[in-house]
C-alpha cells in the first residue's frame, strides 16, 4: 500500500489515523490473548500476542509505538485479564525499554533476525511478571506456567511477525 500524501483534510485525517495502527493492533492482540484456548497442565496454550506486537512495532515503527501506547495496551490487558491493574503494563513497558535498546542492532534487517532479541525480551518479561505477581499475591507463583507461556510466545514470534508485517505499510516511521 502506498504512503498517503496530499494536504487535503481527508488525507490528513487518514494519515493521522494510521499513526494509531500499531496501537490498534496491540489492543486487538489483547482481545486475541484472552480467548479460551485451553491449557496443558498449568500452561496456557496461547502466546502473549501483545508482547510480540509491542516488540515488533518498537523495532519497525518506534514513533507509533510510544510509551503511552504501550501503557494503554498493558492497562487494557490488565482490565480484561482480571489481574492486578498495572502488572501487564509494567511488563510491556519493561519490554519497550529493552526493545528500544536492541533496535539499533536490527535496523535494516528482517523481522526474523530480531528473533533472538525477542527471546531475551520474553525471558525478562517472564521474570518481571513472575516477580511482581508473587509480590502482589504474597505467594510464590508457579514459574512453570510463566516459563511455558513465554516459551510458546518466543517460539511463535516469526509467525506473528509475518502477520504484523501486513500492517507496516500504514504510515511512515
Amino acid at each position: 500500500m502506498r504512503p498517503i500524501y496530499g494536504s487535503s483534510v481527508g488525507s490528513r485525517i487518514v494519515r493521522g489515523t494510521t499513526l494509531f495502527v500499531p496501537t490498534f493492533v496491540g489492543l486487538f492482540c489483547v482481545i486475541a490473548a484472552v480467548m479460551p484456548y485451553g491449557t496443558a497442565g498449568s500452561i496456557t496454550l496461547a502466546p502473549i500476542f501483545p508482547l510480540a506486537a509491542i516488540y515488533f512495532f518498537v523495532l519497525t515503527r518506534p514513533a507509533m509505538m510510544t510509551p503511552v501506547s504501550v501503557f494503554l495496551i498493558g492497562i487494557f490487558h490488565d482490565l480484561l485479564s482480571g489481574g492486578p491493574l498495572g502488572l501487564w503494563a509494567l511488563v510491556y513497558l519493561a519490554s519497550y525499554g529493552v526493545g528500544m535498546s536492541l533496535r539499533l542492532l536490527f535496523i535494516g534487517r528482517s523481522a526474523g533476525a530480531a528473533w533472538p532479541g525477542f527471546v531475551i525480551v520474553c525471558a525478562l518479561s517472564g521474570l518481571v511478571v513472575w516477580f511482581f505477581a508473587s509480590l502482589f499475591y504474597q505467594t510464590v507463583v508457579p514459574i512453570v506456567a510463566v516459563a511455558g507461556q513465554m516459551f510458546i510466545t518466543a517460539a511463535l514470534f516469526p509467525l506473528l511477525a509475518w502477520i504484523f508485517t501486513f500492517f507496516l505499510p500504514f504510515g511512515e516511521d
Binding site: V34, P36, S42, I48, G82, G83, V129, A145, V146
Partner: peptide, 15 residues
C-alpha cells in the same frame, strides 16, 4: 458460556 479467560500464566479465571 465461557467466552474469555485471563490469558496469562498467574491466574485461573474465565469470563
Amino acid at each position: 458460556r465461557v467466552v474469555a479467560d485471563d490469558g496469562g500464566p498467574f491466574r485461573r479465571t474465565v469470563v
